[in-house]
Amino acid sequence: MQRDVIAPTLIGVLAVAAIAAGLMFTGGPNTARAEKRDDARHRDIRDLSRLVSCIKSHDDALPDTLKSDERCKAAPLVDQTNRQPYRYNVISENSFDLCADFELPERFQSYSRYTRPSGQWQKESECFRFTLK
C-alpha cells in the first residue's frame, strides 16, 4: 500500500471505529429520546419536591398525598409522556420518596452523586428520596 494511502486510510478506520464504539456507548436515537423523557420526569420530580417542601413549611408536616396547593408554586402531578401520576411515599417525619416510571433508571444510579441536590436515587425502589431539614 502506498504511503499516501496509509495515513488517510488509518484516519478513516479510526473514525469508523470511534463512531461505532460511540454509538454502542451512547445508544441510538431511541435511547436518546428515552433519556429526554426521563430528564423531563426528573425535572417534574424536582418541582414536586419543592411543592412538598413548601407545603411542609406552611403546615409543619409532610402532606399525606401529592396534591396542588394554592400557597405554593404548581408542579405537574402527572407524567406528561405517559399520563401516569407520579407516586409519593412518606418515609419519615422529614423524608419522602417521589417515583416515576423511568425508562432508563440505570442512568440515575451512574450519576447519582450529581443528582443528590435534587434527591438521592434509590436503586431498589427506583425512586428519588428527599430529606428536608
Binding site: G12, A15, A18, I19, F25, T26, R107, Y111, Y114
Partner: peptide, 21 residues
C-alpha cells in the same frame, strides 16, 4: 467522575465525525 453530559458530548463528537471525517 461520570457525568450525564458525557453522553451528549459523545453524540456531538459522533455527529462531527460523521460529517467531517
Amino acid at each position: 467522575y461520570t457525568s450525564r453530559y458525557d453522553l451528549e458530548w459523545a453524540r456531538w463528537s459522533i455527529a462531527a465525525l460523521i460529517v467531517f471525517a
